[in-house]
Amino acid sequence: MTTSVQATPAIQIRDLHKSFGSNQVLKGIDFHVDHGEVVCVIGPSGSGKSTLLRCVNQLEEPDSGQVLVEGVDVCDPETDLDAVRSRIGMVFQQFNLFPHMNVLRNLTVAQQKVKGRSKAEAAEVARANLEKVGLAGRENVYPAHLSGGQQQRVAIARALSMDPDMMLFDEPTSALDPELVGDVLEVMKTLAGEGMTMMVVTHEMGFAREVGDKLVFMDGGVIVEEGDPREVLSNPQHERTQAFLSKVL
């Protein structure tokens, strides 16, 4: 049993289609993320990369195709979606911390209500994760009093407090002032170094090159090119990849 789980990819996507009205956003995506792998997804805005990420934990429901998370079909109505989601950490562009709760409560509320941990246990896990993102001692602060970079690190700590098997990052540094990006990327690098399975939609080519195991370039709802990040970034094969990279690098 253990071997079969290891052989199953963390995330497996097959022939995924998604439209918003008449706008076809995903036109048949095949793609997988292995355990412990860091996969970065890049591409111009409107290419469908965020939608693809949001299909993994079903914040968007695909029109057709399959999304398997550790072998479990998350599109199947029989699947306990809440249980699957509690094992997938998600980090948003806009942080989405709960503004009416202090930092500690942000980190403990789902642990207690979803995982059924005791208050003390949840607080202990929360403190450890706050320390990990470099914000120990900020337990009683409310999100509005933190900088964007600090808020995003709290958001990462909130996701980590659920002990997720994998993490999804949806443009985690796009809403940050340039001088605050580094701290967040540093935390993500640490996570990757610890072997966390990560799927990262990003515009940070430096992060993709340095940390990524695989780079996926999307355009117009399809995967145009994928491969080793250093390879793709320095020697793109497809002309759409070349055109995109020439603009952002």
Binding site: D82, M90, Q94, K113
Partner: peptide, 21 residues
């Protein structure tokens, strides 16, 4: 904001729990 619901749901909270909490 819609992001609040999405954050809560992605932490595994049910729809009802999200509404209340």
């Amino acid at each position: 904001p819609k992001g609040q619901t999405e954050a809560a749901r992605s932490l595994g909270m049910s729809a009802g729990r999200t509404t209340v909490t």
